[in-house]
Amino acid sequence: MNLEYRQAEEISEDDYKLLLDADPSKEIVDSYIKRSTVFEVLNLDKLVGIVAMLPTRPETLEIVNIAVAPEQQNLGIGTMILEKMIASAKAADYNTLEIGTGSNSYQQLHVYQKVGFRMSWIDKDFFTNNYSRKVIDKYLTFDGFVLKDMVRLTMKLK
């Protein structure tokens, strides 16, 4: 698979569908997306993923949103996007790359650690404090599990 990365000049409706798949609050997405560099990920000119990167502190870059189109998941695209963003962050001379996910987002935690991220801390009650509605993890096999905490992961690039 030969993925193409295109910096988004404007966030399209299709971009929003993917961004909101990873983060269910349009208001929160809008709050960080305007400060981020957003890359659309294409395969054969079809949008298959999206990633948003945000400088947060000196020499630190955060992946604030990453999503793969539902019909394209479990094909390794997410791993390829992460590897490309890691290489880009290194080339841009960042020292640290960060990412966060729900404490019960087991598949994402597996992928992030597989590419080299390490758990660094837990932001307790992140989702209950920052989202106006309960966030239910749609990927879990049982219903009603309310997402409360965010796991923060870090990768040292140098």
Rank of each mutant, 00 (worst) to 15 (best):
F117V: 11
R57C: 05
D15G: 04
T56E: 14
G116I: 11
E10F: 12
G102Y: 02
K26S: 04
R133D: 12
A52L: 03
K134E: 15
F39G: 08
E9Y: 03
D137M: 10
A67M: 03
L82P: 05
N2C: 05
A89D: 07
T141Q: 13
E10I: 13
L75M: 14
N95S: 14
D23I: 02
K124G: 08
A22K: 05
D14S: 14
T56L: 06
V29C: 10
L61N: 11
G116T: 12
E71Q: 14
P24K: 05
Y139C: 03
T154H: 09
M150T: 03
Q107W: 03
A8S: 15
S25L: 07
K34P: 00
R35W: 06
F117A: 13
Q73P: 00
Q73C: 04
E71G: 00
I66E: 08
D23G: 06
A67D: 01
T141C: 07
Q73D: 02
N95T: 07
L54A: 05
K124F: 13
E40Y: 01
K17L: 13
N2T: 09
T128C: 09
A22N: 02
D21R: 01
L20D: 02
S103I: 01
L140F: 07
V111N: 10
N130G: 07
G76K: 12
T154G: 01
A52C: 12
K148N: 10
I136V: 14
L97R: 11
I86G: 09
M53R: 12
R152H: 11
K84G: 09
Y112I: 09
K158D: 13
K90Y: 05
L147A: 03
V51P: 02
V41L: 14
F127I: 07
E71C: 05
M155G: 04
A8W: 04
K134R: 11
Q7E: 15
L75P: 00
V135K: 10
N65L: 04
Y94G: 09
T154D: 11
A67T: 01
I77Q: 10
E98V: 10
T101K: 07
L147Q: 13
L75H: 11
G144E: 10
I50Q: 06
L44E: 15
R152D: 03
L147Y: 01
Y32K: 05
K134C: 02
S36G: 02
D137N: 15
E83P: 00
M85C: 10
A89W: 08
F145A: 13
Q72R: 09
